[in-house]
């Protein structure tokens, strides 16, 4: 029942964390857009953009969605999900790109 007995102090501590995360997210948004205007070569741009997006996503998942204070099982389920997600993302890699977009005779 600990879940329902959060003290007001704990909650206000949470609130301070939320505001810090909010600040971090705004800074990271500015960084993403700023880096775009530098017009890096494509590989660099993709790497930077995805790393920043992943950090932002992790912040949202860990703090706003409280994933950081959850317990075992859900991590396993999400890990399974992440694994199949990666399998899905392998689709483009394993596809023969000569065959995409054109009719082969």
């Amino acid at each position: 029942m600990s879940h329902h007995e959060m003290t007001a102090e704990e909650v206000s501590h949470h609130v301070r964390t939320y505001l810090k995360v909010f600040g971090a997210l705004l800074v990271l948004t500015v960084i993403t857009v700023g880096v775009f205007y530098l017009h890096l070569p494509i590989v660099g741009a993709v790497v930077v953009a995805l790393i920043v997006a992943s950090i932002k996503g992790s912040l949202v998942a860990c703090y706003f969605m409280h994933l950081i204070s959850e317990r075992g099982l859900i991590y396993w389920i999400l890990a399974l999900c992440a694994l199949f997600f990666v399998v899905l993302l392998l689709l483009p890699v394993i596809t023969d790109h000569e065959a995409v977009g054109t009719v082969t005779h």
């Binding site: 596809t95 977009g101 054109t102």
Partner: peptide
């Protein structure tokens, strides 16, 4: 719908193309 698709002898020029049937 791939680029240059021909259906019943007619090229589908209205398509933007670039799609992948394998997808």
């Amino acid at each position: 719908m791939p680029t240059g698709l021909v259906v019943s002898g007619v090229e589908q020029a209205h398509l933007s193309g670039g799609g992948s049937p394998l997808l």
